[in-house]
Simulated scan of single mutants.
Amino acid sequence: MDPILVFCLPAIGDFVRCHSAVQVIAERFPGHPIDVITSPLAAPLARLMPSVRKAWVLEKRHLQAGLGNRMQLARQLREQNYRACYLLSSSTKAALVPWMAGIPERIGYPRELQFGIVNRLPAGWLKSLVAFGPRKTRLFEQVCAIAMLGERPADGTQLPPPRMVISPEELSAWRVRHGIDAARPALALYTSDFANFRSWPAERFVSVARDHARRGWSVWIVGGPREREAATQIRAALPEAVDFTSTPDITDAMCQIAASNVFLGVDGGICHAAAALGGPCVLIFGSNRSYETGPVNDQVRYVEPPISTPSWIEHTRDVSEDNVLEALAAAVTQAHRPQGA
Protein backbone atom coordinates (compact mmCIF):
# COMPACT_ATOMS: atom_id res chain seq x y z
CA MET A 1 0.00 0.00 0.00
CA ASP A 2 1.13 3.54 -0.72
CA PRO A 3 2.83 5.20 2.25
CA ILE A 4 1.61 8.38 3.92
CA LEU A 5 3.85 11.22 5.09
CA VAL A 6 3.20 13.43 8.14
CA PHE A 7 5.14 16.70 8.40
CA CYS A 8 5.41 17.18 12.16
CA LEU A 9 6.50 20.05 14.35
CA PRO A 10 10.18 20.27 15.38
CA ALA A 11 10.18 20.88 19.15
CA ILE A 12 10.13 17.77 21.36
CA GLY A 13 6.83 18.49 23.10
CA ASP A 14 5.10 19.52 19.88
CA PHE A 15 6.43 16.48 18.04
CA VAL A 16 5.13 14.17 20.76
CA ARG A 17 1.69 15.79 20.51
CA CYS A 18 1.71 15.15 16.76
CA HIS A 19 1.50 11.43 17.52
CA SER A 20 -2.20 11.90 18.25
CA ALA A 21 -2.67 12.81 14.57
CA VAL A 22 -0.53 9.86 13.46
CA GLN A 23 -2.83 7.50 15.37
CA VAL A 24 -5.91 9.06 13.76
CA ILE A 25 -4.39 8.60 10.28
CA ALA A 26 -3.36 5.00 11.07
CA GLU A 27 -6.94 4.20 12.07
CA ARG A 28 -8.39 5.85 8.95
CA PHE A 29 -5.95 4.10 6.59
CA PRO A 30 -5.09 0.70 8.08
CA GLY A 31 -2.15 -1.04 6.46
CA HIS A 32 -0.62 2.10 4.95
CA PRO A 33 2.92 2.77 6.23
CA ILE A 34 3.24 6.16 7.93
CA ASP A 35 6.48 8.15 7.95
CA VAL A 36 7.16 11.49 9.63
CA ILE A 37 9.38 14.52 9.08
CA THR A 38 10.77 16.36 12.07
CA SER A 39 13.93 17.91 13.54
CA PRO A 40 17.16 16.06 14.39
CA LEU A 41 16.41 16.56 18.09
CA ALA A 42 12.96 14.98 18.00
CA ALA A 43 13.48 12.34 15.29
CA PRO A 44 14.93 9.59 17.58
CA LEU A 45 11.61 9.49 19.44
CA ALA A 46 9.81 8.31 16.31
CA ARG A 47 10.97 4.72 16.74
CA LEU A 48 9.17 4.60 20.09
CA MET A 49 5.86 5.66 18.54
CA PRO A 50 3.40 2.96 17.44
CA SER A 51 2.28 3.26 13.78
CA VAL A 52 5.38 5.23 12.73
CA ARG A 53 7.60 3.39 10.24
CA LYS A 54 10.38 5.92 9.70
CA ALA A 55 11.46 9.46 10.51
CA TRP A 56 12.90 11.82 7.91
CA VAL A 57 15.11 14.59 9.29
CA LEU A 58 15.15 18.16 8.08
CA GLU A 59 18.68 19.03 9.09
CA LYS A 60 17.81 22.35 10.70
CA ARG A 61 14.65 23.47 12.44
CA HIS A 62 11.83 23.69 9.89
CA LEU A 63 11.71 27.48 9.89
CA GLN A 64 15.49 27.86 9.51
CA ALA A 65 16.41 25.20 6.97
CA GLY A 66 17.47 26.69 3.63
CA LEU A 67 16.11 25.91 0.20
CA GLY A 68 19.00 23.55 -0.49
CA ASN A 69 18.13 21.39 2.53
CA ARG A 70 14.51 21.28 1.46
CA MET A 71 15.28 20.38 -2.15
CA GLN A 72 17.60 17.59 -1.03
CA LEU A 73 14.93 16.11 1.22
CA ALA A 74 12.29 16.52 -1.50
CA ARG A 75 14.43 14.49 -3.94
CA GLN A 76 14.61 11.66 -1.41
CA LEU A 77 10.89 11.79 -0.74
CA ARG A 78 10.07 11.69 -4.46
CA GLU A 79 11.45 8.13 -4.61
CA GLN A 80 9.06 6.89 -1.90
CA ASN A 81 5.76 7.30 -3.81
CA TYR A 82 3.86 8.88 -0.96
CA ARG A 83 0.12 9.18 -1.67
CA ALA A 84 -0.43 12.11 0.71
CA CYS A 85 1.30 14.45 3.10
CA TYR A 86 -0.42 15.84 6.19
CA LEU A 87 1.09 19.21 7.07
CA LEU A 88 0.82 19.62 10.83
CA SER A 89 3.09 22.65 10.57
CA SER A 90 1.33 25.60 8.96
CA SER A 91 4.46 27.32 7.56
CA THR A 92 4.99 27.83 3.84
CA LYS A 93 8.56 26.57 4.17
CA ALA A 94 7.21 23.27 5.48
CA ALA A 95 4.64 23.04 2.68
CA LEU A 96 7.33 23.50 0.02
CA VAL A 97 8.91 20.12 0.77
CA PRO A 98 6.01 17.80 -0.25
CA TRP A 99 5.17 20.17 -3.12
CA MET A 100 8.71 19.90 -4.52
CA ALA A 101 8.56 16.13 -3.92
CA GLY A 102 5.48 15.86 -6.13
CA ILE A 103 3.28 14.27 -3.47
CA PRO A 104 -0.25 14.35 -4.97
CA GLU A 105 -2.25 15.27 -1.85
CA ARG A 106 -0.87 17.98 0.45
CA ILE A 107 -3.29 18.43 3.32
CA GLY A 108 -3.35 21.29 5.81
CA TYR A 109 -4.71 24.68 6.82
CA PRO A 110 -3.41 27.47 4.52
CA ARG A 111 -2.61 29.89 7.34
CA GLU A 112 0.16 31.48 5.28
CA LEU A 113 -1.98 31.43 2.12
CA GLN A 114 -0.20 28.46 0.54
CA PHE A 115 -3.00 27.85 -1.98
CA GLY A 116 -1.81 25.40 -4.62
CA ILE A 117 1.11 24.31 -2.44
CA VAL A 118 -1.49 23.00 0.02
CA ASN A 119 -4.10 21.46 -2.27
CA ARG A 120 -6.54 19.70 0.06
CA LEU A 121 -8.11 21.86 2.71
CA PRO A 122 -9.89 20.46 5.78
CA ALA A 123 -13.49 21.46 6.39
CA GLY A 124 -13.67 24.76 8.22
CA TRP A 125 -10.38 25.98 6.77
CA LEU A 126 -11.74 29.47 6.06
CA LYS A 127 -12.89 29.94 9.65
CA SER A 128 -9.47 28.87 10.82
CA LEU A 129 -7.77 31.27 8.41
CA VAL A 130 -9.68 34.36 9.56
CA ALA A 131 -9.82 33.53 13.27
CA PHE A 132 -8.85 36.40 15.55
CA GLY A 133 -7.86 36.49 19.19
CA PRO A 134 -6.44 33.69 21.35
CA ARG A 135 -7.09 30.17 20.13
CA LYS A 136 -8.89 27.93 22.62
CA THR A 137 -8.08 24.76 20.69
CA ARG A 138 -5.19 22.78 22.12
CA LEU A 139 -2.38 21.78 19.80
CA PHE A 140 -3.18 18.08 19.90
CA GLU A 141 -6.74 18.93 18.86
CA GLN A 142 -5.46 21.10 16.01
CA VAL A 143 -3.26 18.35 14.56
CA CYS A 144 -6.04 15.78 14.93
CA ALA A 145 -8.39 18.14 13.06
CA ILE A 146 -5.97 18.10 10.11
CA ALA A 147 -5.75 14.30 10.27
CA MET A 148 -9.56 14.08 10.21
CA LEU A 149 -9.85 16.61 7.37
CA GLY A 150 -11.74 18.98 9.63
CA GLU A 151 -14.48 16.50 10.51
CA ARG A 152 -15.76 16.67 14.07
CA PRO A 153 -15.33 13.47 16.08
CA ALA A 154 -18.55 11.67 16.93
CA ASP A 155 -20.13 12.48 20.29
CA GLY A 156 -18.35 10.64 23.07
CA THR A 157 -15.29 9.92 20.93
CA GLN A 158 -12.00 10.74 22.61
CA LEU A 159 -8.99 11.80 20.57
CA PRO A 160 -6.05 9.47 21.14
CA PRO A 161 -3.38 10.81 23.50
CA PRO A 162 0.25 10.56 22.35
CA ARG A 163 1.92 7.25 23.13
CA MET A 164 5.49 5.98 23.20
CA VAL A 165 6.63 2.45 24.04
CA ILE A 166 9.99 1.16 25.26
CA SER A 167 10.33 -2.61 25.18
CA PRO A 168 11.07 -4.49 28.43
CA GLU A 169 14.27 -5.79 26.80
CA GLU A 170 15.55 -2.29 26.01
CA LEU A 171 14.68 -1.08 29.50
CA SER A 172 16.42 -4.07 31.08
CA ALA A 173 19.54 -3.47 28.96
CA TRP A 174 19.57 0.20 30.05
CA ARG A 175 19.43 -0.80 33.71
CA VAL A 176 22.33 -3.21 33.24
CA ARG A 177 24.47 -0.58 31.48
CA HIS A 178 23.95 1.92 34.29
CA GLY A 179 24.00 -0.50 37.23
CA ILE A 180 20.43 0.32 38.22
CA ASP A 181 18.76 -1.78 40.92
CA ALA A 182 15.25 -2.39 39.61
CA ALA A 183 14.02 -3.14 43.14
CA ARG A 184 14.86 0.35 44.44
CA PRO A 185 12.21 2.98 43.69
CA ALA A 186 13.34 6.04 41.73
CA LEU A 187 12.04 9.60 41.42
CA ALA A 188 12.82 11.31 38.08
CA LEU A 189 13.10 15.11 38.32
CA TYR A 190 12.76 17.43 35.33
CA THR A 191 13.42 20.99 36.51
CA SER A 192 14.01 22.99 33.32
CA ASP A 193 16.21 26.04 33.93
CA PHE A 194 15.51 27.50 37.38
CA ALA A 195 15.51 30.97 35.80
CA ASN A 196 12.60 29.90 33.59
CA PHE A 197 9.24 31.17 34.87
CA ARG A 198 7.82 27.70 34.19
CA SER A 199 10.16 26.06 36.70
CA TRP A 200 9.75 25.67 40.47
CA PRO A 201 12.06 27.13 43.16
CA ALA A 202 15.29 25.16 43.54
CA GLU A 203 14.97 24.74 47.31
CA ARG A 204 11.59 23.05 46.88
CA PHE A 205 12.93 20.54 44.38
CA VAL A 206 15.75 19.84 46.86
CA SER A 207 13.26 19.38 49.69
CA VAL A 208 11.16 16.90 47.71
CA ALA A 209 14.31 15.06 46.62
CA ARG A 210 15.56 14.83 50.22
CA ASP A 211 12.21 13.51 51.38
CA HIS A 212 12.40 10.65 48.90
CA ALA A 213 16.09 9.95 49.53
CA ARG A 214 15.38 9.62 53.29
CA ARG A 215 12.81 6.96 52.45
CA GLY A 216 15.29 4.94 50.38
CA TRP A 217 14.45 6.24 46.93
CA SER A 218 16.96 7.01 44.19
CA VAL A 219 16.70 10.54 42.82
CA TRP A 220 17.48 10.99 39.11
CA ILE A 221 17.76 14.42 37.46
CA VAL A 222 16.79 14.12 33.80
CA GLY A 223 16.94 16.50 30.86
CA GLY A 224 19.70 18.08 28.80
CA PRO A 225 22.00 21.11 28.66
CA ARG A 226 19.28 23.47 29.93
CA GLU A 227 18.95 21.45 33.14
CA ARG A 228 22.66 20.94 33.92
CA GLU A 229 23.08 24.00 36.14
CA ALA A 230 19.96 23.04 38.08
CA ALA A 231 21.32 19.50 38.45
CA THR A 232 24.54 20.93 39.87
CA GLN A 233 22.57 22.92 42.46
CA ILE A 234 20.51 19.91 43.50
CA ARG A 235 23.56 17.65 43.81
CA ALA A 236 25.36 20.27 45.90
CA ALA A 237 22.57 19.90 48.45
CA LEU A 238 21.96 16.18 47.84
CA PRO A 239 25.16 14.50 46.56
CA GLU A 240 23.51 11.09 46.20
CA ALA A 241 21.21 12.41 43.46
CA VAL A 242 22.18 11.08 40.03
CA ASP A 243 22.73 13.65 37.25
CA PHE A 244 21.57 12.23 33.91
CA THR A 245 21.52 15.61 32.13
CA SER A 246 24.63 14.80 30.09
CA THR A 247 22.82 11.97 28.31
CA PRO A 248 23.90 12.13 24.64
CA ASP A 249 20.81 10.39 23.24
CA ILE A 250 17.23 11.47 23.91
CA THR A 251 16.03 7.86 23.74
CA ASP A 252 18.37 7.16 26.66
CA ALA A 253 16.53 9.91 28.55
CA MET A 254 13.28 8.12 27.74
CA CYS A 255 14.70 4.96 29.35
CA GLN A 256 15.55 6.98 32.46
CA ILE A 257 11.97 8.20 32.73
CA ALA A 258 10.43 4.82 31.90
CA ALA A 259 12.62 3.10 34.52
CA SER A 260 11.58 5.51 37.27
CA ASN A 261 8.59 4.93 39.52
CA VAL A 262 7.25 8.47 39.19
CA PHE A 263 8.16 11.55 37.17
CA LEU A 264 8.05 15.05 38.67
CA GLY A 265 8.43 17.84 36.15
CA VAL A 266 7.49 21.30 34.97
CA ASP A 267 6.07 22.72 31.74
CA GLY A 268 8.38 21.70 28.87
CA GLY A 269 8.93 19.26 26.05
CA ILE A 270 10.25 16.44 28.25
CA CYS A 271 7.04 16.41 30.29
CA HIS A 272 5.08 15.55 27.13
CA ALA A 273 7.46 12.68 26.41
CA ALA A 274 7.18 11.43 29.99
CA ALA A 275 3.39 11.50 29.81
CA ALA A 276 3.39 9.62 26.49
CA LEU A 277 5.47 6.83 28.07
CA GLY A 278 2.49 6.06 30.29
CA GLY A 279 4.08 6.08 33.74
CA PRO A 280 2.92 8.12 36.76
CA CYS A 281 3.54 11.84 36.20
CA VAL A 282 3.14 14.84 38.48
CA LEU A 283 3.50 18.15 36.67
CA ILE A 284 3.83 21.61 38.20
CA PHE A 285 2.14 24.21 35.98
CA GLY A 286 1.03 27.81 36.25
CA SER A 287 -2.73 28.26 36.63
CA ASN A 288 -4.70 27.51 33.44
CA ARG A 289 -1.56 26.65 31.47
CA SER A 290 -2.13 22.92 31.87
CA TYR A 291 -5.30 22.96 29.76
CA GLU A 292 -3.73 24.79 26.83
CA THR A 293 -0.17 23.45 26.83
CA GLY A 294 -0.07 20.41 29.11
CA PRO A 295 -0.09 16.71 28.21
CA VAL A 296 -3.52 15.12 27.83
CA ASN A 297 -2.62 11.61 29.02
CA ASP A 298 -4.94 10.26 31.70
CA GLN A 299 -2.27 9.33 34.26
CA VAL A 300 -0.92 12.89 34.54
CA ARG A 301 -1.61 14.80 37.76
CA TYR A 302 -1.29 18.58 37.75
CA VAL A 303 -0.32 20.74 40.71
CA GLU A 304 -1.14 24.39 40.06
CA PRO A 305 -1.34 27.67 41.99
CA PRO A 306 -4.78 28.80 43.14
CA ILE A 307 -6.64 30.67 40.43
CA SER A 308 -6.75 34.40 41.04
CA THR A 309 -8.02 37.48 39.22
CA PRO A 310 -6.92 37.69 36.44
CA SER A 311 -7.08 33.89 36.37
CA TRP A 312 -3.78 33.31 34.62
CA ILE A 313 -0.64 32.79 36.69
CA GLU A 314 2.48 31.89 34.75
CA HIS A 315 4.82 31.37 37.70
CA THR A 316 4.65 28.39 40.09
CA ARG A 317 5.87 29.96 43.35
CA ASP A 318 2.51 29.40 45.05
CA VAL A 319 2.67 25.62 44.56
CA SER A 320 3.57 24.15 47.96
CA GLU A 321 5.88 21.23 48.70
CA ASP A 322 3.09 19.51 50.64
CA ASN A 323 0.80 19.57 47.61
CA VAL A 324 3.54 18.12 45.41
CA LEU A 325 4.41 15.36 47.90
CA GLU A 326 0.73 14.49 48.22
CA ALA A 327 0.34 14.30 44.43
CA LEU A 328 3.46 12.11 44.10
CA ALA A 329 2.19 9.68 46.73
CA ALA A 330 -1.23 9.52 45.08
CA ALA A 331 0.31 8.95 41.63
CA VAL A 332 2.42 6.03 42.88
CA THR A 333 -0.54 4.50 44.74
CA GLN A 334 -2.73 4.80 41.65
CA ALA A 335 -0.06 3.14 39.48
CA HIS A 336 0.06 0.12 41.79
CA ARG A 337 -3.70 -0.21 42.14
CA PRO A 338 -5.15 -3.13 40.13
CA GLN A 339 -7.15 -2.03 37.10
CA GLY A 340 -10.85 -1.71 37.89
CA ALA A 341 -10.20 -1.36 41.64
Rank of each mutant, 00 (worst) to 15 (best):
T157L: 02
L126E: 08
V165R: 07
P134E: 07
D193C: 05
D211V: 15
S167L: 07
P153C: 06
G133M: 10
Q233F: 13
P185C: 11
N196S: 07
A202I: 05
R184H: 12
I166R: 02
A213V: 01
V130R: 14
P134I: 04
D193R: 08
W174A: 07
R163S: 11
D155R: 12
Y190A: 06
W200L: 10
K127T: 12
P201I: 13
L189K: 00
A145N: 10
F132R: 09
P160D: 01
V222C: 03
R235S: 05
S172Q: 10
F140H: 15
S192W: 08
R152H: 07
A123I: 10
A231K: 03
R226L: 10
A154E: 15
A188P: 01
I180A: 00
I234C: 01
A236E: 09
G150C: 06
E169S: 13
K127L: 11
F197S: 10
A230Y: 00
N196H: 06
A131L: 13
E203F: 02
P161K: 00
A131W: 13
T191M: 06
R210N: 08
Y190G: 04
Q142T: 09
F197C: 04
A145E: 15
P162W: 13
A147Y: 05
S167P: 04
M164A: 15
K136E: 13
T157P: 04
K136P: 13
F194A: 04
A147S: 00
G133S: 14
F205A: 06
S172L: 15
E151T: 05
F140N: 15
G124F: 07
A145F: 14
P168A: 04
A182M: 00
S128F: 12
G124R: 05
R215I: 03
E229T: 14
P162L: 09
G156V: 02
D181W: 04
E229V: 15
K136Y: 14
L126Y: 08
G223Q: 03
E151K: 09
A145D: 11
A188F: 02
M148A: 04
S199K: 06
A123K: 15
A145C: 08
S207T: 12
T191E: 04
L129F: 11
Q233M: 13
A147V: 03
W217S: 03
G223R: 00
R204P: 04
L159I: 07
R175Y: 13
A186F: 02
L171K: 09
W220Y: 04
I221N: 02
A182P: 00
K136A: 14
A195H: 04
I146R: 10
P225M: 09
I166W: 06
E170W: 13
R184F: 08
D193K: 05
Y190S: 07
A209M: 05
R215H: 06
P153T: 05
W220I: 01
K127M: 11
W125A: 14
P201H: 14
F197L: 04
S207K: 11
L139M: 13
R204A: 09
F205M: 04
P185D: 12
D211I: 12
D181Y: 00
A173G: 09
E170R: 15
A209D: 02
E169R: 10
S167T: 08
L159P: 07
F197W: 07
L129G: 12
G224M: 00
R226G: 11
G223I: 02
S199V: 06
A186E: 00
R210E: 09
E203V: 02
P160Y: 07
P122R: 08
R214P: 03
E170S: 15
